[in-house]
Design a protein around this nucleic acid. Structure first.
Lengths: 146, 146
DNA sequence: TTCCTTGCAAAACTTTTGCATTAAA
DNA sequence: TTTAATGCAAAAGTTTTGCAAGGAA
């Protein structure tokens, strides 16, 4: 049993990470397991630096380059999803099911919006030679009254 | 008459830029006029570096810092709109009227989608204490068949 | 004079890359 | 043994900032 998966819950997460990585054709190395276990522990949005900090705090020995390269690998294989909500940095979403987002610009908070909460009664046809690959919807929020 | 506004059309653009800057409470300095004239010449999406290159090519003497600072000023005053479609860099949209975008991920092309082309028959209520500040909708496109 | 704006260079920040080392199949 | 993954440092790319100089009110 690995040191980082000491509790039953952590073992569950680790097992699920490994299964999903293999399903995505990703070899589950030690570092990739650590990174996946942080991000896939629950539905959440984390930056590369947040993930690196979390790994360091838990004593894991993972380099910055590996974190970035691994997150790019995960995103390209569909294990996670990369978001562009602000220009400052990339956010990685552990929820790859189709969904949208609320974005509180003041706090930076991102909140998932399930697909059934949004209905389009009209959408433009894609330009000739193209088809819709996906829809990124971000509902920007401000504090009431401001 | 300024060298950069030699044609009648350029004078029109310059006059419109000046009017809009004053309306937004922005003092129309020489550099700001040059930057606004590039971006506001037509509805378009440009990066800071593209604007800088365009200015340099037309012989304007504007520093990189001023381009970035001015674009941020314009965006904060509502003269232009900053877009986050890819993580790589910020895009500045000369069209501040509400609208959405197609985004061809392969080519990077951004195409405006007018508001009437999209209808929402259902939207989630904003979380308590917040209200909707705006809706960013990006319809990602891929080449047909790929 | 006073305040605002600009330019330059340097710094800050995020992300990528080259390459030697290590680990895995 | 052969290939793939990792770590480190350096580089690359974008954006911001400190500060001196210049320009407008």
């Amino acid at each position: 049993m690995d040191a980082f998966a000491s509790s039953l819950q952590e073992q569950d997460i680790a097992a699920r990470c490994q299964r999903r990585m293999v399903d995505c054709g990703i070899r589950p190395t030690a570092q990739r397991m650590r990174i996946a276990s942080v991000l896939l522990a629950e539905p959440q949005h984390l930056s590369a630096e947040q993930i690196l900090a979390s790994l360091r705090q838990s004593g894991a020995r993972v380099s910055k380059a590996t974190v970035y390269n691994t997150l790019n690998l995960f995103a390209s294989r569909g294990l996670i999803r990369q978001l562009s909500v602000d220009g400052a940095r990339a956010w990685f979403d552990s929820n790859v099911d189709a969904h949208y987002h609320f974005h509180d610009v003041a706090t930076g908070a991102l909140i998932d919006v399930p697909v059934p909460e949004v209905e389009f009664s009209r959408l433009p046809p894609p330009p000739p030679g193209t088809e819709v690959d996906g829809i990124d919807l971000v509902i920007r929020l401000r504090k009431t009254g401001s």
